[in-house]
Structures are given as C-alpha cells and as structure tokens.
C-alpha cells in the first residue's frame, strides 16, 4: 500500500491573544504516491510546522491532514504513535540520534519499537548502511560520527521501517553540496523507486529543483511554484 496525502485548509497558531503567531495559514495541497515534493521558504515561514503536522507530531489548530483518507489530526495519541511507526519515516532537522547507540543500533531501534524480529532488522539495517556508505562506521557511536555521517544515519533510520511517507527536514544542512545532492538523489530513488511519497523541507533551491514539485511558503501561506520559474 502507498500513501495518498490531502492537506485541507490546514492552519497552526502558536500562543493566543496578541502573542498569537500564525505559523501555517490555510494550507491546501495534495500529493500522490511516487511523488517527491520540496517545501521551500525563508526561516520562520512555517515549513517545519507544516511537516510536523503531516508527520503526526503536531496537532493542527484547524483543517485536516488526510493520509489514505484518514484524518490523522483526529487520531488518539496511541494511534498517532502507530501512524508514525507504521507509515512515516521522519528525518529531523537536527538529526537527533540517540548518542549512546551505535549507527547500526540507531537504525535497529526503530524495528525494536515496531516489534520486528532482530534478524530481519539487522539485515535491513546492514542493507541501508551499505546504501548510505556507512558500513565501516556501523559500530561507531552516534557521538563519534561526523555531521554528515549522522545525517545519513538519520536518513537510514527514517527508511528503516519501509515507510509510505518520507518526511525530510533540511537533510543537507550539515552536508557539502556534492554530498547533499547525493543524499537527496538517493532519497528520491528510494521514494520514487518504491512508490512512496516524499516531502522535503529545504531552503536550498538547488536541492529543491531535484524534486518533482515545489511548494513555497511565506508567512505561513503555501503556494505551488512552477518548477520552470523556481530558478528565478
């Protein structure tokens, strides 16, 4: 099964009264399996908030996020955890690896949470580490990895449970442009090759151009930007 996404009039407000900040304003868009979307925009435009709401990490103030026809905002906390575990692979802006685990264990921990047998998890982790060029660093603790290596481990972790929806927040922030392009391309290969749906938040227009579609955010507003105009 693959994920179809519909975001309808999605809004998020932080705080209340005069202090209220409208982070996302009536965002509406849809995406199909096999697509890779990029969300671009300046800092503070609401990109990460939008991604977190799609990932079931943050409750919207209004509107809905439907994944395969199910509004995830209406799920209970337990169901949201199940949604994140079963359907979503999330690469966080700061890779957020568990520092006391090795690169390989940071991947297999996801399977342990999902109750997948350790044998299958080990095979999958080894395969992903090889694809990400990290086989030789698999036994290194997260704290012993470079920024780029940590980011690649975080990508591996997101793909570990073979998710239908891959959400990536600034994946190239700690990578040089060449390595960044490589990482984004391998992510796209994984997403498109397996009919998944990928959404990447980035401020790097060069990376965004690699995506199928580009959504631009400004002061919480989302609008689709034609790719041939994106380079302007």
């Amino acid at each position: 099964m693959t994920a179809t996404l519909r975001v309808n009039n999605l809004s998020k407000t932080y705080g209340g009264g005069e202090q209220a900040v409208l982070a996302v304003r009536s965002a509406t868009f849809a995406a199909q399996p096999g697509e890779f979307l990029a969300i671009v925009g300046p800092s503070g435009s609401g990109k990460t908030t939008l991604l977190a709401m799609i990932g079931g990490l943050l409750a919207p103030t209004s509107g809905s996020v439907e994944v395969n026809g199910r509004d995830i905002a209406r799920l209970s906390r337990g169901q949201q955890a199940e949604y994140r575990r079963a359907l979503v692979g999330y690469v966080f802006q700061t890779n957020n690896l568990l520092p006391f685990l090795t690169a390989r264990e940071n991947l297999t921990v996801v399977s342990a949470i999902g109750g997948i047998s350790s044998k299958d998890a080990s095979r999958r982790a080894d395969q992903l580490l090889e694809e990400l060029g990290l086989t030789r660093r698999s036994r290194a603790l997260a704290t012993q990895l470079s920024g780029g290596e940590r980011q690649r481990v975080a990508i591996g972790r997101a793909l570990m449970n073979d998710p239908e929806l891959v959400l990536v927040d600034e994946p190239t922030a700690s990578l040089d442009s060449q390595r960044g392009r490589q990482v984004v391309r391998s992510l796209m290969d994984e997403v498109k090759g397996r009919g998944k749906l990928g959404i990447m938040v980035t401020h790097d227009m060069e990376m965004a151009m690699l995506a199928d579609r580009i959504l631009e955010m400004h002061d919480g507003h989302v609008r689709e930007r034609m790719k041939d105009l994106a380079g302007d």
Binding site: A81, V88, Y90, N96, V109, V110, I113, G114, N161
Partner: peptide, 16 residues
C-alpha cells in the same frame, strides 16, 4: 526527555 521525544517521534508508545 529529549531522547524520549526522539523515540516517541519515531513511533514509540509511552508504554515502550
């Protein structure tokens, strides 16, 4: 708390 947040973000339940 931060580590627990990471675990929850990747789908761990509070019980886990």
């Amino acid at each position: 708390v931060a580590h627990i947040g990471v675990l929850k973000a990747v789908g761990a339940s509070s019980f886990f």
